[in-house]
Design a protein around this nucleic acid. Structure first.
Lengths: 333, 333
DNA sequence: CAGCATTGTGAAAGCGCTTACAGGAAAGGC
DNA sequence: GCCTTTCCTGTAAGCGCTTTCACAATGCTG
């Protein structure tokens, strides 16, 4: 790592480092002839300004952070990609932090916060105390999948109305006993809203069963237990597609036909939802756009273009496929 | 972002900034009483050393970069998580860069390189010219899924022997005409090795058909074309699991039974491979460990613990499931 | 008690850049 | 020909930290 500095460029071009800086960033006037000399020297020395030097002088990192539990499944992945793409367009790079299975998350987040100008945080991956701390020091923050809180942006997909629509659709199939599989882990997060939504329609006809995690494995295990019990429900509404896929597996193993013996629905419309057999009825949410918007929101907060927290809700779409019951004109996207 | 600096801590503790630094990092002797005063001041002011200041002075970023095409599917995701976890253990954070759909990748990589101490690069996401450039300036580099090249580490899963084993297994089923779907995009990458491996066993009995990308969609499209043609193969060996899932979809659409009419195999053993129906026969590779090892290798290179490039190959495992044909004692993990 | 090794501390020089600020030169107005 | 403007350019002061070096104070040895 032989580093050529701005001093060498300046010396070679026969100017001061201030002029080199100005010529390169286009700030302040520089005579055409001088600029040429500088650019020539830059070219010859293959000079790139040290990011560290620039950042220290500018007082900003030109980087965004993102905190997610893990990358299991397409949800986080898609949000991440949308985030990185837009951040990159805005000249910021993205520093990641996965909290799953990590001890000392507090320290990790603190370290991350020291490396970036703003942070995207998923749900409740960061403790409330630390969130307050971050808000306190003025760190620009945007949350995805978390109830609005003062001092930070919030960005989420619509959940409640979609959940009601889904519940309504299931009622239309004539089912009477339901289970919500993948009970919410935290009040106010996406899954909690979904649960509240379906319950507001189904009332006592649905009960929540936890899975521990929102994964295929956990969904599978929980579903085995549930489906073997005497009180087997007629329809299972899952917290997300992964859990639903687990249910599909369990049903197959137990010889239950979906949707004839058991209706199953997911949430997110991940790739595998379409490919599952039967294909999953689910709610599509704009995951990638969630990330993209988060990056823009953060940019506004960082640059000071906006200083009051915003809370945005993106619309979703009910995607009806085979897993929830038979339809006259099936739409299997 | 009110920042408290080392000067304020020093003033409050009644010592010099040098002492604060020493007390905090444990470098150089500090009297117990002094240390206490410093720690007290640090506590009271809630001081955290500025990452920028530290990095500039130390001359290192304490960060690693990673360049991947996208995060479609679990492969990149798993490697990324393994990488981030170990990097984090080693005190380094991870800066990401996705190249898919990006113009000016050269600049993006250059910018990334200026922000980190070392880089993990997947396959051929970075041009050979730029790789040479990076090697030239002494940037520690480790490649995953790329043929060994001078000046950088290389880390990959075993491909050729596994491919031969897979081919042998298929021959055991009695098939005679094969297609390799998802032709290699670059010589020397993982898929190329897989292709070379199966061909070394099957010879003229297999031909390669490109998919453009290694995704379910592309696999599906290519498979539709292939399976409708007169010269429909009896068995399709896919570049990876995603493509194989696409083939499964196409086969279903065309009313072909798998494995009775058509045998299909994947590669990677992603989650969906087990959940597909029929479950996919595939090759399992230790994706997460690939990332973990990359992080360690990079650390050695960065700290100077090692200065000669290393080239490591991790072992894989043939996972036989239902998609490749009927077996007497089926092992459906 | 002189002499020497230890230990603890501060001053100051970087690390590589940005950006007031000031001053010199060229150009225009009278 | 003198005085303003307007343009360029350089000097130097940071940005926040680490670390070398010198020096003072302390503890030991003989």
């Amino acid at each position: 790592m032989v580093d050529v500095t701005i001093y060498e460029v300046a010396r070679r071009a026969g100017v001061s480092i201030a002029t080199v800086s100005r010529a390169l960033r286009g700030t302040g006037p520089v005579a055409a002839r001088t600029r040429e000399k500088v650019l020539k020297a830059v070219e010859e020395l293959n000079f790139t300004p040290s990011r560290l030097g620039v950042s220290l002088a500018e007082g900003r990192h030109a980087a965004n952070g993102i905190v997610f539990p893990d990358l299991a499944g397409p949800y986080y992945t898609q949000v991440l990609l949308g985030y990185e793409e837009v951040a990159s367009e805005l000249g910021r790079s993205v520093v990641i932090l996965s909290t799953k299975g990590r001890t000392r998350v507090h320290e990790l987040v603190r370290d991350l916060a020291g490396r970036v100008d703003g942070l995207l945080v998923f749900g409740h991956t960061v403790s409330d105390a630390q969130v307050a701390e971050l808000v306190g020091v003025g760190m620009p923050l945007v949350f995805v999948s978390r109830e609005p809180l003062p001092g930070a942006d919030t960005l989420r997909s619509e959940n409640t109305a979609s959940a009601r629509a889904l519940a309504g659709h299931l009622l239309g199939h004539g089912y009477e006993r339901f289970t919500f599989l993948g009970a919410p882990l935290a009040t106010g997060d996406d899954v909690d809203e979904r649960w509240q939504g379906v319950r507001s329609v189904l009332g006592g006809a649905i009960e929540a069963v936890p899975t521990g995690e929102y994964t295929v494995e956990c969904g599978y295990d929980a579903a085995l237990r549930l489906l073997r019990s005497a009180a087997r429900p007629r329809a299972v509404v899952c917290s997300d597609d992964e859990v639903a896929l687990g249910v599909l597996l369990a049903a197959e193993e137990l010889g239950l036909a979906v949707p004839d013996d058991l209706a199953v629905t997911g949430w997110d419309d991940i790739m595998a939802a379409r490919h599952a057999r039967p294909a999953l009825t689910t709610i599509r949410q704009p995951m990638r756009e969630l990330g993209a918007r988060a990056a823009r929101a953060l940019d506004e907060l960082i640059t000071g273009a906006r200083d009051t927290p915003a809370h945005l809700v993106l619309t979703t779409e009910l995607v009806v496929r085979a897993s929830c019951g038979h339809h006259h004109q099936e739409e299997c996207t």
